[in-house]
Amino acid sequence: MTDVNVIINEKIEKFGKERQALMPILQGIVADKNYITEDELLKVAEALDLSAADVYGTATFYTFLDVVPRGKYVIRVCKTISCHMAGKDEIIEALEKTLKVKLGETTPDKKFTLLQANCMGWCHKGPVMLINDEVYPELTSEKAIAIVEEYIAK
């Protein structure tokens, strides 16, 4: 993991010490650390000369900018209509059993968080899930379990 100040400075260099650097900084922290801590939010606010409330308000607006602890691999199963009709409930059930967590929870070893999310743009190939940025379309319960087991072995 990279020091948060390194991420902040790297993004400021690229996007300027302006408000428009905020999203790239927050995205950079999530990409590196899976979620943003209170302490990190304060450091970002200080670096960009913004109020802490403003930074927190921006981060919490966006589903992918997590401010609560998340696992190393965040699994997001699509829950919107086409994936719902194609059987996303069975996928979630299978993953809950494999990871021994309920939807919304993180495994005790902090490796996986299981979530559902809105439409991911794979309606013709549902059910689909994202593991961090990777996409896994055309799932069956067996296929989803096999994919997650590969991550467990990592």
């Binding site: 408000r19 428009q20 790239p24 308000g57 607006f61 966006y62 589903t63 900018l65 809105n118």
Partner: peptide, 26 residues
């Protein structure tokens, strides 16, 4: 290229501008 962060509303043009500007996508 600028990245979104999982908010459907940012497909609305003015919300998208707000997001690029580093704000809540309102």
């Amino acid at each position: 290229i600028r990245s979104g962060a999982g908010a459907y509303i940012c497909g609305e043009e003015s919300a998208l501008f707000e997001s690029i500007e580093g704000k809540r996508g309102e």
